[in-house]
Design a binder for these strands. Structure first.
Length: 249
DNA sequence: AAGCTCAGCAACCGCGTTTAA
DNA sequence: GTTAAACGCGGTTGCTGAGCT
């Protein structure tokens, strides 16, 4: 029996001997992935997927790892400080979620993107009902209100593909006014102090995690595991197993 | 209590970029 | 220099649970 599956990257279709799984991940799959990465490290996702015995695409494995399984992923509500930061960085860079995520260690681009769409953008949409009929951030505001510094900030970044939605800038500038700001600090000065890995200053001193996130390392602390207890199956269900197997972390 | 609506989020898809052969 | 594969990113979809009628 043969199935057609999506080829990664450049597209195309190939025939393989078994169907590639899609949809929600099972705990067994998670464990296999975490276990494999703990032993061999991440990267080469297609190879990894096969080697780990996962019937998933490399793409899917990478996404699962980055957005959910990585031990330094923070879960739980977005704090007011993070809210402020997201609003300001979105105003500065547009929908460059991965870039924004680098300034919020532990938060993923997907999480920030979802937060933006469900909380901030929707709020704005409500306030502009009857003015703009469209629903996407790209088309809400007239392009004439775009701030020049958005372009300037993007120069020198690795991939300015033209997808950046400059039209969203004006929306978020408006929201920056509403967003909560850490006490005793104007939003401008607050932003100016930030750099990737800064989060230890606003996340209760999880220096190790923030530094590790900035460095790309994986650190699992008891505190982190405790904070992760709101997962479908908690990460602490997975990591102790992995740690006992590999004696690391 | 049942049905409906909506919000939140995990995961998929398509496309651009990078890398290796 | 070319091409294909792999990677990374942003947009979108669809499922699930909570709240409402």
């Amino acid at each position: 029996m043969q199935y057609t599956v999506e080829g990664s990257g450049g597209g195309g279709v190939q025939t393989v001997e078994a169907a590639v799984r899609k949809g929600p991940w099972t705990m067994e799959e998670d464990l296999s992935l975490v276990n494999y990465i703990a032993a061999n490290g991440e990267g080469a996702w297609n190879t990894l997927a096969r080697a780990a015995g996962l019937n998933r695409t490399g793409k899917s494995c990478r996404l699962r790892w980055l957005n959910y399984l990585r031990p330094d992923v923070r879960r739980g509500n977005i704090t007011p400080e993070e809210h402020t930061l997201i609003v300001e960085l979105q105003a500065r860079w547009g929908n460059r979620w991965s870039k924004i995520a680098r300034y919020l260690p532990g938060r993923t681009d997907n999480e920030i993107k979802n937060f933006w769409r469900t909380k901030i953008q929707k709020k704005h949409r409500k306030s502009t009902d009857g003015i703009y009929a469209t629903t996407t951030s790209e088309s809400i505001m007239p392009a004439a209100t775009v701030h020049q510094n958005t372009v300037a900030e993007d120069q020198g970044s690795s991939s300015v593909s033209g997808r950046t939605t400059t039209a969203t800038v004006a929306v978020t500038q408006e929201y920056a006014i509403e967003a909560p700001t850490p006490s005793g600090m104007s939003s401008g000065s607050y932003l100016d102090q930030l750099q990737p890995g800064y989060a230890s200053s606003i996340h209760g001193g999880q220096d190790g995690g923030a530094a590790a996130a900035a460095a790309g390392d994986v650190v699992v602390s008891d505190e982190f595991l405790a904070a992760s207890s709101d997962n479908f199956w908690a990460l602490e269900d997975l990591w102790p197993t992995v740690q006992s197997l590999h004696g690391n972390c």
